Amino acid sequence: MEDYSKYSDPELATALRLGNDAAFKEIYTRYFKLLYLFAYNKLRDEEEAKDVVHDVFAWMIDHTENFALKTSLSSYLYKSVLNKIFNIFSHQAIIKKYIDQGDHYIEVDSTETDYLIREKDIAGMIRQEIEAMPPKMREVYRLRFEQYLSAKEIAAKLDISENTVNTHLKRAVKQLKNNLGIAVFVLYVLNG
């Protein structure tokens, strides 16, 4: 078995994109502790810090075929963790705003309540926005983000071009960002 510890980050990223599990294991070994410490310093919660780092690595596993770096591997990983942390902070701001409105009686510090509010409010807003999309855009969006079909598969299923699929997806994402705000949209994408 090859020794991936001697591989550079770009070599590991290329091997990962080709589906090499050993390359992923080396990336994980090389960066997990550093990313965890980085997340912990921001969040001050061990479990939440571990969850954030695991989510980033889980995303990498699920998207290896599309894993293309525009920066260094370490920059990509740190930025991904930081985006997850911003997501958590944005979510906390949404919860605080909801609580400050005083339209309900809940235990503010309850983690369970926190998740229930997020699920109910944000999922409801997103559902509403998706329902408001033009029919074809909505259908393309759902096939991509709810059934996880590729643009090519959607084009074949709906008998339209891939360009048309991509146009619908770009417009749908833009509409969601504009109507929901970037913080809610990012929260949705990262937890979707």
Rank of each mutant, 00 (worst) to 15 (best):
M133H: 07
I154W: 06
H91N: 11
E153K: 14
I126N: 02
I95A: 07
R171P: 00
E139Y: 02
K152Y: 06
T113Y: 08
H168E: 01
Y148T: 07
I99P: 00
T164L: 08
L116K: 08
T71L: 05
I126M: 13
Y105S: 14
I99Y: 14
K157A: 08
V165P: 06
I94S: 09
R138E: 06
K170W: 04
F145C: 05
F89A: 06
F89R: 12
L82Y: 15
E119M: 07
K96M: 10
P134W: 02
V81Q: 02
H168D: 04
I160E: 05
T111C: 01
Q101W: 10
T111L: 11
H168M: 06
N166Y: 04
A132E: 10
I88H: 09
I117T: 03
K170A: 08
R138D: 00
I130N: 07
Q175T: 15
K170G: 05
Y141S: 03
K97W: 06
P134E: 13
V173G: 11
Q101D: 10
I160F: 03
R118C: 01
L143P: 04
Q92E: 13
E131W: 07
L69F: 02
G102V: 06
Y105I: 13
T71W: 07
I99W: 11
Q92L: 12
V108D: 15
E162L: 01
L169R: 11
S72F: 08
S110D: 15
K97T: 10
D109T: 12
I122P: 03
L77T: 02
V140N: 03
Y115G: 02
T111H: 11
M125W: 11
L69T: 05
T113E: 15
Y98R: 07
E146R: 13
E107G: 10
S80G: 04
F89T: 05
H104G: 02
E139G: 00
P135C: 01
S90C: 01
F89Y: 15
F89I: 09
S110G: 12
A172D: 01
K157W: 02
D159G: 08
E162M: 04
I94R: 09
A155D: 03
Q101F: 14
Q101T: 10
N163R: 06
Q175P: 00
R127I: 00
E139H: 11
I154P: 03
T167N: 09
S110I: 05
D103I: 11
Y98F: 15
V81P: 01
A93Y: 10
E107P: 00
I88S: 04
H104F: 12
L69N: 06
V108E: 15
S74L: 12
E153R: 14
A132M: 10
Q101Y: 12
S74F: 10
D114V: 00
I106F: 11
L169P: 03
I160K: 08
Y76S: 10
